[in-house]
Amino acid sequence: MHLDHAETFPERHTHSAEPRRPDGTRRALRIGLGGPVGSGKTATVAALCRVLRDEFSIAVVTNDIYTREDAEFLLREAVLPAERITAVETGACPHTAIRDDISANLEAVEDLENAIGPLDLVLVESGGDNLTATFSKGLVDAQIFVIDVAGGDDIPRKGGPGVTNSDLLVINKTDLAAHVGSDLESMARDAEVQRGHLPVAFTCLKTEDGAKPVADWVRERLTDWTAGPA
């Protein structure tokens, strides 16, 4: 008898982003959301959950700087049942946990799939970090980088791995553009210069359907994932 492990799961350790779980089923699509502090990552996750939760089986992993802040926000907002939200602790280095040493996040994703699976989609939210943070391809299949107009309309021009290479760039809080003197058109032009044909979505999460462009993009990724080669 051992009082520390009352529950047992079948052994499921993978160490890469293999599309199949060890039992042969297709694992959930994993999408990472990164971006600077306060740009609206958690709000975007909450909005995506509200829009997509009736169509898909979703879970969320948060990577907070301080333990469980973001996870608790999502719980308060009740966007998903509590058992679908997990917080990973990052030792004051959130970018390490999503890029250099992804083991804790992989564990969290797999535990969610084992506990409440099968899942269609796992959203992995990074702790707010700087413009250089990106997700490892060993952890996520696609990544969304969230910035906002209030952070300065020169961010797209400055570039950086998140702005340049993310699969979707979200420019949030468009309603504030006029108040903070940000020029949405120049942001769109700069983003295109940096990103070529990679998509950009302008959002205002306060409005009804504010997250629609992001949700639509996620739906397409899910379609591709389901249809993709095993």
Partner: peptide, 11 residues
């Protein structure tokens, strides 16, 4: 210390 086994999150 960069061996990816989760140690970075522990003090």
């Amino acid at each position: 210390g960069r061996f990816p086994a989760g140690g970075h999150a522990h003090s």
